[in-house]
Design a protein around this nucleic acid. Structure first.
Length: 918
RNA sequence: GCCGAGGUGGCGGAAUAGGUAGACGCAACGGACUUAAAAUCCGUUGUCCUUUGGGACGUGCGGGUUCGAGUCCCGCCCUCGGUACCA
């Protein structure tokens, strides 16, 4: 017997690849050859290991890597672990086990699972973001950011030393808010007049990594900041139900907003799915408009607003400040104080999503103060309302109900005046009119179209010193610190007088201290200063004496994003102890376009990809990398979804143990409609969602490998549908991929004798046609990552071989090579059995010959009035007249032409004939 | 709410420039082989009507453009991803 023994075969070839380092990309490659850098989003090593959803992208990139190697390309295909993160830390808090122990254990398990899938990674390049050798360089990059500023003139990052130089030499002066202004400006001071602390404040306003007070969800009961999604509607923590307060905290920030224009504009240069580019553009949210200053009646202060519609300024009938706006307290009149304070408290407890939701009841409170509209000196009331967010624009708006729907709703609710300043069309019967039209009720703007009116308004405002044209972004600076233990420590020291000192590059890495208790310090007092876990570390770590000054270490850590922001660079040169990457290697592997193919889940479409691009651009400006963009081509994969079941209490139960009314396992009847499901005798309800731990519907790749082998698993996952679509896991369908491979095996190997069925004989002409058409189909499918259709083509070719007693060598070889990227183990085995002594990993991909791909006759459909009534076979190059005659005289067509008038004849060569009659 | 994607047989999906809807696989049904079962091989399989020939309908719902629409346009419904501290 010599049936398809996938267990032995897969073990044999995985060992072979490992022993021979088949997929090792040497440190020095032949750089005259083209390169292909294909990368996965590396996983977080979770305790439950991989489920079958994880490898979806990994299998796809592996196929590409193997395919590219067969096209004589240098391939870089690495893998690692994004191993800082909350679960290991949470486990440490609860069980006192050091996160490193948990993390290492999980990595070992996931590594075993990944290797079992036959993925052709260069494992010698593997690392984790938690390796000190790696995070040393994460800290190094952080220092580059800290020591850089954004030069507005040149639109690029530069070393802050250049700015200091310019300041010292008196090129600029400093204003009262520690911002740089023209020299000798009124009320300015020169840099050299400032003390060290003041100078530090100036630089903080320009560094790309800086500290600032920002409002966050502070949960003193947990001693940490929470994500919006971790806060309940009642304003309490999901975990533990502690109260949560919106409170300003001094946090590390990244000045990503400085790069907003480039992050939008340079998207044009990358080959990414258009929807992802769209999401990034919308996220950055560039809008052109104007800042306008409104004087407050009886106060010195002005209120600055951003508006995209400066043309409607005559229609500004009231103003709205965000409840958190710093001027609210000063402006509010005594009678209104209590109401305002109540409203502020209420608004602080609401999530941003709730606050922006349209269609809900508008809420707000009058401050009692009035502003003066600069264009007509009208007094307009100042309100606060939660539909204005502190973080967007200036946190204040001029409300123009005539041209803005939300303002109209608000004005109606509170009976505020509405003035139209754009003439709606006569048949317009809506409320706010946002369309185009001539300006009305607008003095010097009257009659102008929106675009002209905007220009005119901005010109008037600048001439009168009450405003200026401006571009505003929705994008906010990136909040970069976390109150956690299991993250990269900041290479930062705090001087007792508040000055921030960067640790010397030579003293990197700053390693995490050993600790027993990893929890942050909780408190009942919402105003108590936060004490992150590192605050519990030994004083010998927390304090460091330099030149007689005792500095305190920064106690926050970096977010998980930090490690994943640049790992694609480190893979190029992972062991380099002297540099974050060797410049020559970087130049070859990233080149002009960066990573050649990056595959990952669409949930990363905005944040991770945006943060990475930002860091990359800084490194590019500082001449550390050669490509403007990190990822030249990006592909979003879909999710594997699965059915999940909940009991009467709404708790998810293990999907594996759910049965239907006839006792069948639920997983076998999931696509039938008339099933009632139960778990341990009690009825359960069914839902559908992303496979994972929380829904208890995860399927481990180990199970499938045990039962069918990983070649089958690989094929099944790719055959489920297009890579970018989400699709349901259906265990029952796996058998189809398994049958295909067994059928392949039997075409090559006599199961009774073990003899090869491959013979060196001339294939029939028919078979050559099928072969070459298949090569064409598979090659084209591979090039567009359409592996499901590549597999379908191979199945068809294989089915055509089933009826043969022996298969010709030419066909057998080409078929094996095409199957190899998809199902590499069985392919290597068959290749060896055809007499080859080395791996097929670097064999040449088959090429098709045009003469076998084209047919002499083609079948086309004949339509009458757009309905197919028959088909005809015609020579490929038949002249139109002949085709139309053949069509009209065809038996099943001609009867539709009787007693009718032929009005029109359409012939699309090779496709269709359509005869229009009546 | 906002931004983005999707909806095609009993199920997963195919149809790359608007041109024969349902390739390929699963399930189901019929047959061959077998003492039997499994495995394997051959065939049928969108729905409805029809005696055969065939006909009508059909890509979430409602409209539209076109000789021709799964594909393009307008309006709706539902599902999924993101919404900045999950990453």
């Amino acid at each position: 017997m010599s049936s398809y023994a996938f267990n032995e075969i897969e073990k044999k070839w995985q060992d072979h690849w490992e022993e021979n380092k088949t997929f090792r990309t040497p440190d020095e490659v032949d750089t005259s050859k083209p390169k292909f850098y294909v990368l996965d989003m590396f996983p977080y090593p979770s305790g439950v290991g991989l489920h079958v959803g994880h490898p979806l992208g990994y299998i796809a990139t592996d196929i590409v890597a193997r395919y590219k190697r067969m096209l004589d390309t240098n391939v870089l295909h690495p893998m690692g672990f994004d191993a800082f993160g909350l679960p290991a830390e949470q486990y440490a808090v609860e069980h006192g086990v050091h996160p490193r122990i948990t993390t290492d254990k999980n990595i070992q398990n996931m590594l075993r699972q990944l290797k079992r899938l036959g993925l052709s990674y260069d494992w010698d390049r593997m690392f984790s973001t938690t390796d000190t050798d790696y995070y040393k360089w994460t800290q190094w990059i952080f220092l580059k950011l800290f020591n850089s500023y954004f030069d507005e003139q040149d639109q690029k990052a530069k070393p802050i030393s250049e700015l200091i130089q310019a300041l010292t030499s008196g090129t600029y002066a400093i204003d009262g808010e520690f911002k740089i202004i023209a020299p000798n400006a009124e009320g300015s001071r020169s840099w050299n007049e400032l003390d060290e602390k003041e100078q530090d404040q100036v630089l903080a306003n320009y560094r790309l990594a800086y500290m600032a007070e920002v409002p966050v969800n502070w949960c003193p009961g947990l001693g940490t900041v929470l994500a919006n999604e971790e806060v309940t509607n009642e304003g309490r923590s999901e975990r533990g139900n502690f109260p949560v307060f919106k409170r300003p905290l001094r946090q590390w920030m990244m000045r990503i907003t400085a790069f907003a224009d480039r992050l939008i504009d340079e998207l044009d240069d990358v080959e990414w799915p258009e929807p992802v580019k769209m999401m990034q553009r919308n996220w950055i949210g560039r809008s052109k408009g104007a800042f306008i200053e409104f004087q407050v009646k009886g106060h010195d202060q002005n209120i600055k607003v951003f508006t995209t519609r400066p043309d409607t300024v005559f229609g500004a009938t009231y103003m709205v400040l965000a409840p958190e706006h710093p001027l609210v307290d000063q402006l509010t009149t005594n009678e209104q104080k209590e109401k305002i304070a109540d409203y502020q408290t209420w608004a602080a407890s609401r999530s941003e999503i709730e606050r922006l939701a349209e269609g809900k009841e508008k809420t707000g409170v009058f401050t009692g103060a009035y502003a003066i509209n600069p264009v007509n000196n009208t007094e307009i009331p100042i309100w606060i309302a939660d539909y204005v967010l502190a973080g967007y624009g200036t946190g204040a708006i001029m409300a123009v109900p005539g041209q803005d729907e939300r303002d109209w709703e608000f004005a109606e609710t509170f009976d505020l005046p509405i003035i139209r300043t754009v003439q709606p069309p006569e048949d317009f019967d809506g409320k706010a009119y946002t369309g185009n039209g001539p300006a009305i009720n607008s003095d010097f703007l009257n009659g102008l179209k929106i675009k002209e009116a905007k220009h005119a308004a901005i010109e008037w405002l600048s001439n009168n010193n009450t405003g200026e044209g401006a571009t505003n972004f929705k994008l906010r600076d990136w909040l970069f610190s976390r109150q956690r233990y299991w993250g990269e420590p900041f290479p930062i020291l705090h001087h007792p007088d508040g000055i921030i000192k960067a640790i010397d590059v030579a003293d990197l890495p700053v390693t995490l201290p050993e600790m027993e208790d990893f929890s942050p310090s909780a408190s009942e007092d919402p105003n108590a200063p936060p004490v992150p876990p590192l605050g519990r570390s030994d004083d010998s770590w927390k304090f460091i004496e330099i030149d007689g000054v005792v500095y305190a270490r920064e106690l926050n850590t970096m977010p998980q994003w930090a490690g994943s922001c640049w790992y694609y660079i480190r893979f190029i040169d992972p062991q380099n102890a002297n540099q974050f990457v060797d410049p020559d290697k970087e130049k070859y592997w990233l080149g002009e376009n960066g990573v050649d193919l990056y595959v990952g889940g669409s949930e990363h479409a905005v944040l991770h990809l945006l943060y990475s691009r930002f860091w990359h651009k800084v490194l590019y400006d500082l001449s550390y990398v050669t490509s403007k963009e990190p990822f030249g081509r990006y592909f979003s994969q879909g999710y594997i979804q699965a059915f999940a079941y909940r009991d009467e209490r709404g708790i998810a139960v293990p999907a594996d143990d759910v049965i239907d009314q006839d006792g069948n396992p639920a997983t076998e009847v999931q696509d039938q409609n008339d099933r009632q499901f139960s778990y341990k005798g009690s009825p359960v309800t069914r839902e559908y969602g992303k496979m994972g731990k929380s829904l208890k519907n995860a399927v481990s790749p180990d199970e499938v490998c045990d039962q069918y082998g990983c070649d089958t698993l690989r094929l099944y996952e790719m055959y489920m549908g297009p890579l970018d679509a989400s699709k349901p896991w259906n265990t029952r369908d796996i058998i189809g991929s398994s049958r295909f491979l067994r059928r392949v095996w039997r075409n090559y190997v006599d199961e009774n004798t073990g003899e090869s069925l491959v013979v060196d004989a001339q294939p029939s002409d028919d078979l050559l046609h099928i072969l070459h058409k298949t090569i064409k189909r598979v090659t084209e499918s591979m090039d567009r990552l359409s592996f499901n259709t590549a597999i379908a083509a191979l199945i068809e070719l294989n089915n055509a071989l089933v009826s043969l007693d022996k298969i010709p060598l030419e066909i057998a070889k080409a078929f094996t090579l095409m199957l190899a990227p998809l199902a590499p183990h069985i392919s290597e085995e068959l290749w060896e059995r055809m007499g080859h002594s080395s791996s097929l990993a670097h064999e040449n991909w088959p090429k098709y010959e045009e003469r076998y791909v084209t047919e002499s006759m083609v079948e086309i459909a004949v339509q009458i009035n757009g309905k197919v009534r028959g088909t005809i076979k015609i020579p490929v190059n038949a002249p139109k007249e002949l085709v139309l005659d053949t069509a009209k005289t065809n038996d099943s067509v001609s009867k539709y032409l009787e007693e009718k008038t032929l009005r029109r004849e359409i012939y699309v060569p090779g496709k269709i004939v359509n005869l229009v009659v009546n």
